[in-house]
């Protein structure tokens, strides 16, 4: 069997039962698995690593993780603006340090009662990420990962993620992911036994018709889901090209990994959007 690639776009993906089940099916057959961590909130990478570690005990050698930074870090980008990175002068600030049980720790920088910065370190003193605050609200998170330089910068408004900037190995800007919210209508006609469910629209889940007449009527009835959809627009600083939304970008990222010769696993909730971006591709869902 060909090697497998799992696309993870959110922490919730890894928490699904079926993620662990499918992963173990492969690992038990000694099939190498690569996981693409394409979550745009990079700070969640720490939680992801912890969750994954509990899932792959005994199979650590068969699993590798690649982030979007790993895939694109050698591409050429545009220089980052001078104000893109928040800087806090530490002189004269009060500091507090808290150490977790596993040795990880963070240092807080405070000006009186105002939290300005929180820097998170691994047990060996390696800077993982920095959170910056204004009026005690998170405004920017800079993720370093295993590099000594920033990989991504995420900007927040009122505590919510607004944009993520993906940098290359030289600190130049490659892609900007802008979070958007727009009303999207989904219309579908399916039974409750159908496998392709739009599970994010729980309120719009179809119900089985109770009588023969209801069954006949249902055929012309569409169930409508009207939830506003959170998505990302992608600004491309590498080719000045245009991506038709985040799923088109995922397609491009997978293409860079030559996904056609690998067994691709995605969250079934993204199936409709992603499989139309990847026509004629066999997709395994979790």
């Amino acid at each position: 069997m060909e090697p497998a690639v799992f696309l993870v776009t959110a922490l919730a993906d890894v928490k699904k039962d079926s993620f662990g089940t499918k992963l173990h099916e492969l690992l038990d057959q000694a099939i190498p698995v690569r996981i693409i961590f394409a979550n745009l909130n990079f700070v969640e990478r720490v939680n992801f690593d912890q969750l994954l570690a509990t899932l792959i005990v005994g199979h650590e050698q068969s699993v590798s993780v690649a982030s979007l930074y790993d895939i694109f870090c050698h591409d050429d980008g545009v220089p980052l603006g001078a104000t893109a990175l928040t800087r806090v002068a530490h002189a004269g600030l009060a500091t507090q340090r808290h150490t977790h049980q596993d040795g990880r720790y963070y240092v807080r920088y405070l000006q009186n009662d105002q939290l300005l910065e929180e820097s998170h370190y691994s047990a060996d003193g390696h800077l993982f990420y920095q959170n910056f605050y204004t009026d005690n609200q998170l405004v920017q998170a800079v993720y370093y990962g295993r590099q000594a330089r920033p990989e991504t910068i995420s900007n927040f408004q009122a505590g919510a993620l607004k944009e993520t900037l993906l940098l290359n190995a030289d600190g130049a800007l490659l892609y900007r992911f802008l979070q958007t919210e727009r009303p999207v209508q989904r219309l579908f006609n399916m039974d409750n036994t159908s496998n392709l469910q739009l599970t994010s629209l729980e309120a719009a889940q179809p119900q089985p018709p109770r009588s023969k007449r209801a069954r006949a009527e249902k055929r012309n009835t569409l169930t409508v889901g009207n939830a506003p959809e959170l998505s990302f627009d992608v600004m491309d600083y590498v080719h000045a090209g245009h991506f038709d939304g985040i799923y088109d970008f995922y397609r491009y990222a997978l293409q860079r990994l030559d996904y056609r010769h690998q067994r691709l696993y995605i969250n079934v909730e993204h199936n409709v959007a992603l499989s139309t971006a990847l026509p004629n591709q066999l997709i395994f869902n979790y």
Binding site: S275, N280, L282, N285
Partner: peptide, 10 residues
């Protein structure tokens, strides 16, 4: 249905 595998044909 069994393996939950999909294929999209344009």
């Amino acid at each position: 249905k069994n393996a939950l595998t999909s294929l999209c044909i344009p």
